[in-house]
Design a binder for these strands. Structure first.
Length: 443
RNA sequence: GACCCCAUCGUCUAGCCUGGUCAGGACACAAGCUUUUCAAGCUUGCAGCGCGGGUUCAAAUCCCGCUGGGGUCGCCA
């Protein structure tokens, strides 16, 4: 039975890199018919915060990464203490003040078998104690001093490695899938497995996500927390799709992948070894693809909270929102883009971009606008077809090219030089506001 | 610095294991088509095996070195 775990520590928001680690674990569990465990590593009593825990769980649920079992290390301190006492009794550990340290065995080298990297061997010098200048500290006998691993800290809480090894063993984790930054921790943990007499799980170290320049992922490089992407209007499906492509490929030149099809081919051995730079452009493209495919009703539903946050007083109702969603869904990269496109509908006053206004409305077209407004006021049903026929008739009557009138009218109605078809826009705005904005354009 | 990992278009990647198919796809970028505008869509284009040695009839693919990038070196996780 495959059993994997994601083990975040609640000392910050769920990071996009952490989300990918969780995703790969989750996918492996699902692909193998196994179980996915969420284990909260809150052994740092000072830095762990309940609000971060809530945020991590919310983000995971939002991404669809649901878990089969849940544990918190802070509930298990007695257990770690018990094993520390056992090692103490066996003479495999010793006390230093209140802390408990592991006596290191003096193996010449330590092997770690990694499912995607093969065998990694560590030089024993990895465990040498070093001073602030990184020079190896020598003991009285002239040999290097080995730095022993802390098992229990002075405050009684377990060290990361100790709790991790005990939990992975007791929870019967079959595959430890984690970031590459843990490779160097693995030989230390191997020592703990050996002392405890526990079997090793299989290790899988994922390549790290790099910033767009290939450097270390940091706040400066853009959004790092999953919640930030959420508030910026990215869909969970798009994020999940993008993240799975970072270090793994479904083959067959697929980019947009459904989870169902991804799970059919997902395998740990096909995961890349090299780090992957995060590209916001590709995420945006995927997001736009998912938005375009979204059902209009569903899209409108997703837009409701954004609209409510931006326009708490709005009287715009659901049918109209759906109409807007249908018209703009082809031009959104993120849900947030919707608000930029549609501000002219929510606001009484049109917000003109100066450049656009001077380009399209500097020439006085009062006469043409008034004529159009007159005709639009008198047609029966104000629909797209009727608006277009009326518009074409006015243009013909004035003896001008359609384009001469189209652009200024769009700017007068929306404040923008670009957007969906003009007649769709008119109908969306409604006759009353369309006519009013035409009449007031040159006042 | 020490130890460890890694290396295909600017970016994500297929191909590498089991050497021999013009090194394939996607994002971005550029051009064209379409069009009342901008997007979208469709078509086309640009662009890559880090360097140096081997092994071999043949190397992106196997081996070694170099260089470059990343990670770790806490009583943080």
């Amino acid at each position: 039975m495959v059993r994997v775990r994601f083990a975040p520590s609640p000392t910050g928001f769920l990071h996009i890199g952490g989300a990918r680690t969780a995703l790969f674990n989750w996918m492996y569990a699902k692909a193998q018919g196994g179980q996915f465990i969420l284990r909260i590593e809150d052994t740092d009593l000072v830095r762990s915060k309940p609000e971060y825990l809530d945020e991590i769980m919310d983000s995971m649920k939002w991404l669809g990464l649901t878990w089969d079992e849940f544990y918190k290390q802070s509930d298990r301190f007695d257990l770690y203490r018990k094993y520390a006492d056992q090692l103490l009794a066996e003479g495999k550990a010793y006390k230093e003040g209140e802390a408990v340290l592991l006596k290191r065995s003096l193996d010449k080298e330590i092997m770690v078998d990694d499912l995607i990297r093969g065998r990694i061997s560590f030089d024993i010098s990895f465990f040498y104690k070093r001073d602030e200048n990184n020079n190896v500290v020598l003991g009285a006998d002239g040999n290097p001093v080995i730095k022993d691993e802390v098992l229990l800290k002075t405050d009684g809480s377990p060290s990361y490695s100790f709790a991790c090894v005990i939990d992975d063993s007791l929870m019967e984790i079959s595959h430890v899938i984690r970031g590459e930054d843990h490779i160097s921790n693995t030989p230390k943990q191997i020592g703990i497995y050996n002392a405890l007499g526990f079997k090793y799980p299989k290790f899988v170290h994922l390549p790290l996500i790099l910033d767009p320049e290939g450097g270390r992922m940091s706040k400066r490089a853009g959004a790092t927390a999953v919640t930030e992407y959420r508030t910026q209007g990215y869909l969970p499906e798009a994020i999940v799709n993008y993240l799975m492509l970072l270090g793994w490929s479904p083959g067959n030149n697929q980019e947009k992948v459904t989870m169902t099809s991804a799970l059919k081919t997902f395998s740990v051995k096909k995961i890349n070894k090299s780090g992957a730079a995060f590209s916001i452009e590709k995420l945006q493209w995927l997001n736009s693809q998912y938005i375009k495919e979204m059902d209009t009703v569903q899209l409108a539903e997703a837009l409701v909270p954004l609209v409510a946050a931006q326009y708490p007083e709005t009287k715009i109702q659901r049918p109209e929102l759906e109409h807007m969603a249908a018209l703009y869904k082809g031009r959104m990269n993120t849900l947030l883009d919707f608000l930029d496109w549609t501000d002219f509908i929510f606001n009484d006053q049109v917000n003109f971009e100066e450049e656009v206004k001077s380009k399209h409305l500097s020439q006085d077209m009062r006469k043409e606008f008034d004529l159009l407004a007159d005709r639009l006021s008198t047609i029966g049903d104000f629909n797209v077809k009727a608006a277009e026929e009326t518009f074409r008739a006015v243009v013909a009557e004035l003896g001008i090219e359609a384009g001469v009138l189209v652009h200024p009218v769009r700017v007068a109605l929306t404040g923008k030089a670009v957007g969906p078809g003009l007649f769709d826009t008119m109908v969306l705005l409604g006759r009353e506001r369309t006519v009013r904005r035409l009449r007031e354009a040159f006042k």
